[in-house]
Design a protein around this nucleic acid. Sequence first.
DNA 1: AATGAATGAGATTTCATTCAT
DNA 2: GATGAATGAAATCTCATTCAT
Lengths: 198, 198, 198, 198
Amino acid sequence: MSPRTKEQYDDIRESKKKLILDSALDLFANQGFHATSISSIAKKAKISKGLLYNYFESKEKLLMEIMNSGIQEFIDYFDTNEDGILSDSEFKYFIEMSLLTLKSRTNYWKLYFALALQPTVFSILKKKYRKLIESTLAIMEEYFKNKGYKNPKMQALMFGAFMDGISLNYVMDPENFQLEEIKDYVIKSYLNLNDDEN
Amino acid sequence: MSPRTKEQYDDIRESKKKLILDSALDLFANQGFHATSISSIAKKAKISKGLLYNYFESKEKLLMEIMNSGIQEFIDYFDTNEDGILSDSEFKYFIEMSLLTLKSRTNYWKLYFALALQPTVFSILKKKYRKLIESTLAIMEEYFKNKGYKNPKMQALMFGAFMDGISLNYVMDPENFQLEEIKDYVIKSYLNLNDDEN
Amino acid sequence: MSPRTKEQYDDIRESKKKLILDSALDLFANQGFHATSISSIAKKAKISKGLLYNYFESKEKLLMEIMNSGIQEFIDYFDTNEDGILSDSEFKYFIEMSLLTLKSRTNYWKLYFALALQPTVFSILKKKYRKLIESTLAIMEEYFKNKGYKNPKMQALMFGAFMDGISLNYVMDPENFQLEEIKDYVIKSYLNLNDDEN
Amino acid sequence: MSPRTKEQYDDIRESKKKLILDSALDLFANQGFHATSISSIAKKAKISKGLLYNYFESKEKLLMEIMNSGIQEFIDYFDTNEDGILSDSEFKYFIEMSLLTLKSRTNYWKLYFALALQPTVFSILKKKYRKLIESTLAIMEEYFKNKGYKNPKMQALMFGAFMDGISLNYVMDPENFQLEEIKDYVIKSYLNLNDDEN
DNA sequence: AATGAATGAGATTTCATTCAT
DNA sequence: GATGAATGAAATCTCATTCAT
């Protein structure tokens, strides 16, 4: 057989890297970053400890890559509204996508909340998230303002808190927290309010 | 000279124990349980490492005492509604006290959320909290039912999620999250509802 | 470069493990289990403390492996008499081998006696040894019975005590306790009894 | 009430000291010297740790006092034969007393054997014991010589080993090792010898 | 004489990281 | 690219001893 091409090698590298990222995310999310050892990640990914360091230069860097790739995915989802103005259907889409990503990337969000609670660990990531959160809040504020709310800033803040609370409850016990039903509840609560339940 | 009396020893023990519990809570809450070393707790409490083990038999037991004393305090606050029926003013009182304890015991709640996200650590505490959460949810459900909501169970769940979200946002950044204003918003949202809309 | 083969790794592990076992046995036997630190074992084996835990999960498990491998060796030696009947030459062989193993595995027997004196530590090992001791005593009893002794059970017990006493004296001071001479004495005492006299 | 007299104080001191010695002996014998903590001794003696240091300046010194008082008792028992010549009845008495002290001071002998196996700990005590052992062996040798044995030195050594073996077996499992019967066996073996054989 | 809080040295153990192969 | 033996720093925990009262 002929030796592998550059592309094949890259494919292997890429898929192995993903394997490590996924293994680490699962463990970090469910046991905590500090309680997860490099050994256990390597074991879960069925590779040697040494190889892991071939892909990530430290445990912290590994965490950073996990978090960065996660936030990027999130940004990509919501990148559509670059004008900063939210229509009702875009607002609905935002809610739907938020709850969808919660379901498809539960471990990521679990880890996100755990890290967000620990300033020491989080400080490095904070900048990136803060920007995202602030811009999201601003868009929401604008949305509520256009809807005629008296205090759109507070309204946006509380909407954010509400979504966070739902997210938190979901990641803490995904089995017993029915997202479908909740999605309907949230959309109904926010979109049909002034229509009098349509 | 004669030795200290039993009372004197009890006083020493009690105050030193509290000192350790407070130091540990602060560090656990802000750095995470696993990221906090016994050394750092001892340093913060200005005692030797050895002495800590005179008061707590292990780091885990220390954590358990912190969490147990915290939950007890919470239970004591809300023990008033033993009939299980909430009047409007009691509901208001519940909201007020919840946000008050959030302010006075921020570190405790910060630690609570961090632990709740890690099944491995939390499993031991889970039983106690589950009971509390379930009974609170049941009372809320009854309250919303009496208010004439169509889906009181969902309403209670969402109220819980909302309060969790507020709590989470507050403990993550107490300085920039104005609880007073939020308290008014929450009370208004829930208690004036039937005036404006269902 | 390619990694070592499985065989190479196995070789490394086996020889390093033996090195640690030997170092530990020497120290445990001569200073006592509790008085021997992991540090001193590592130093003697010229490895780091950490590596020791790559081979044995705890100090206690290390002790167990030492004791288990020792008893296995002993069982292997005396496994020949599975029919449970001892001829004179087999009895002689038993004595010879007992004293031989005493010489070749002095530290093991030293440690054995020290542990046997401490119920707390010994309890885990007890089961294995008890079985061995009881079956040996039973074979001896049968042997003495066939020799026509009035109280073969007591005779076997006393023979056992005698051998223990010799072993104890030898391990306590191997230099000044001449096993060769003693071997002749024991064999003569037990095997020539009814030939020479009475 | 009048203050206690000097004698009363001395009595109290003496009995408390004995209490500590007994507690320590029990623990040292059954768990080992290093595995026994000062705390556990104090707890067993129902005194405070501090008070223990009022009586013994260190854990090692406490051990020394235990061993010294034990050996003294032993010397006192066998002090009768100062001429160095043993009659048959004195030899019999020696056996009887040895087994008696084994029964009444089991823990002491248990500890003695455990220590004797550990040169590091034993070296300090060794001198005293060596003298006793050597003089006893010499007397025995003389006894066997007078009895007409060809190799009285070896005979004495083997008698010593035999007694050690019995002692060892007894202290390891006092319940299941019937000293009375054994005493008869030993006395019969050694004192009736010249009737039957040799 | 008596207490037990307090210390500090040292024990066992863990684990991120390196390195020879 | 891949292995896992090896290290060393730091973590948790223990305990003989001291000391203020």
